[in-house]
Design a protein around this nucleic acid. Structure first.
Lengths: 226, 226
DNA sequence: CCGCAAGTTAAGCCTTGGCTAACTTGTGAT
DNA sequence: ATCACAAGTTAGCCAAGGCTTAACTTGCGG
C-alpha cells in the first residue's frame, strides 16, 4: 500500500532511509556506507543498496558506488521533516497527553509518517515552538533548519557532565573499531565520572559500562551536551 | 507496505472496508451489497468482491454470495474501533489543537489507522470521555458499544416536522463548510415548512433563518426528531 | 421463462520491499 | 606489486497488497 497521502513516491520506508542516512552522516560526517545503513535498518546490504538507488532516483540522495551515499538538499529536507515530526510528537505525547516516556518513542515512530505538516505546526505552536526535545536534541524548524551540533571534545568535559558521544573526529576507523570492541559506539550516552590530574584519563560511564579513556582518544571523541 | 504495526493482516484498507460495511449497514439495516460498497470506496465491484472475501477469510465478515455482506462480531469490533479513533481524533484536533473543522476530517482519516489503542484512550481521557462528537455522531466506547442512533435523513421529514440537525453523513467537509457559511451547524433546531413536489427542495426554518435545501444535501443531513 | 443488472471469478498488472547467490571493486597486508 | 577478502553491487526471485478488465454466473422482475 502506498503512503496514505500520496507524496509522490516518498513512502514511509523511503523516509526511514532518509532519516537513517541523515543520522549516520551526522555521527561520522562522511558519506554513509551501505553496510552501516543496512545494519541500522536491519535489512540485508543488498536491500539497502537497492533502496539507496530509489532515493537517488527520487532526487533525495547522491551515491558514489562503493563509496557511500549522501543526502541531497531535498533528501535532507525530508529527513529533517520526519525528525521534526518525531521530536514534536514525543514531546507532545509526553507533555500534553501524559504518555509514559518509554512508550512515546514507538508511538512517534508511527505517527511521524502520518501527520500533516499543518498538524505538526499546530502541535509545535501548542508546545510553544520548542527548539529542543527533552533529551536535548535540537528540533529542526519547519523550514528545515537545525541547530548545528555544538559538540565538544570529550576531553573538555568535567566530572558530572553528561552528553552523547556523537562521532570521532575524522571518523578515524581504527579508533572506532577500538571503541566498538569495548562496546562504545556513536550515539551512546555517557557521563564523566572523574578526571585524573596531569592530563590523565577520564573515567567515563556508558550504558555498557565504565571505561577509562585518555590520550588522543578523548580529544578525538566528540560529545554533544544538551 | 504492510501496516506499520503488524495487526495480523488487518491492513488499513481492510479497516476501511469494515468501516464502510458498518456504516452502510447502519443506514439500510440490510446486508450490504457489493456495488454499494464498491461505490462508496470508489473501486470496481470486482475489487470490492475480492476484498470482501479477504474480510471473510479474516473472520471479519460473513457473506452470502449474490446477497451481500455483514460484519461478524469481530468485524464490528474492528469497525467500531476505527470509528472511535476517528471521532476522538476529530474532536481532539479541533478542540485541543484548534484545527479548523473542515480539515479535521481528512487528518483523522489518516491518523485513525495509526494511533495505538493506548493513545486513543489517553485522548479520550483528556476529552473527558465524550460520548458524542461535534457532528452529533455517537462515539463507540473502548469496548465496542455504541449508542443506537435514532436519526433520520432530513429528506424524510414532512412539513410541520421539527427536529435537531445532528450531523452530516460522513462529515463531508464541503457540505459542513457550505452549511456553516449559511449559519447552519450541527446542534441547531429546525422545522420543515414546506416541501416541493418532484423531489424538489425543502423549505426549512432554522433559528438563523429560512433555507431552501435539496439534492444530496437533505439526504446527508441527519436529524433527530424528539 | 427469459433477459438484464448485479455479483463473481479468472487472469493479470504494478508497486513495494525484501531475500539469496553470485558478481565486482577497492584496499590493506604481505 | 599483488592478491585475498570484505564491502558493495547486480541479478533473479518471491510474497503481499490492491487494483483493473473481461468474461462468466445468478437470480429476480416483467
Amino acid at each position: 500500500m502506498a503512503t496514505a497521502t500520496d507524496t509522490g513516491g516518498i513512502s514511509d520506508a523511503v523516509q526511514d532511509y532518509a532519516k537513517a542516512i541523515y543520522s549516520l552522516h551526522e555521527r561520522s560526517d562522511d558519506a554513509v556506507s551501505t553496510s552501516a545503513l543496512a545494519d541500522r535498518l536491519a535489512v540485508s546490504p543488498a536491500s539497502a543498496s537497492a533502496m539507496v538507488k530509489r532515493l537517488e532516483a527520487l532526487g533525495l540522495a547522491t551515491r558514489r558506488p562503493y563509496h557511500g551515499v549522501e543526502l541531497t538538499a531535498a533528501g535532507t529536507r525530508v529527513a529533517l521533516e520526519v525528525i521534526r515530526h518525531h521530536r514534536l510528537l514525543e514531546l507532545y505525547l509526553a507533555e500534553a497527553l501524559g504518555m509514559s516516556w518509554d512508550r512515546v518513542h514507538e508511538e512517534a515512530e508511527v505517527l511521524e509518517h502520518a501527520i500533516s505538516p499543518e498538524l505538526s505546526e499546530l502541535i509545535a505552536a501548542k508546545l510553544g515552538n520548542p527548539t529542543h526535545d527533552p533529551h536535548g536534541d535540537p528540533i529542526p524548524t519547519a523550514d528545515g533548519e537545525i541547530e548545528k551540533g555544538s559538540s565538544r571534545a570529550l576531553s573538555e568535559l568535567e566530572p558530572g557532565d553528561r552528553g552523547v558521544f556523537v562521532r570521532v573526529s575524522d571518523s578515524d576507523p581504527e579508533m572506532l573499531r577500538w571503541l566498538s570492541e569495548r562496546g562504545i559506539a556513536p550515539g551512546d550516552r555517557l557521563e564523566v565520572l572523574e578526571r585524573q590530574p596531569f592530563d590523565g584519563p577520564l573515567l567515563v560511564r556508558f550504558a555498557s559500562g565504565d571505561h577509562a579513556l585518555g590520550g588522543a582518544l578523548v580529544q578525538m571523541m566528540r560529545v554533544e551536551t544538551a
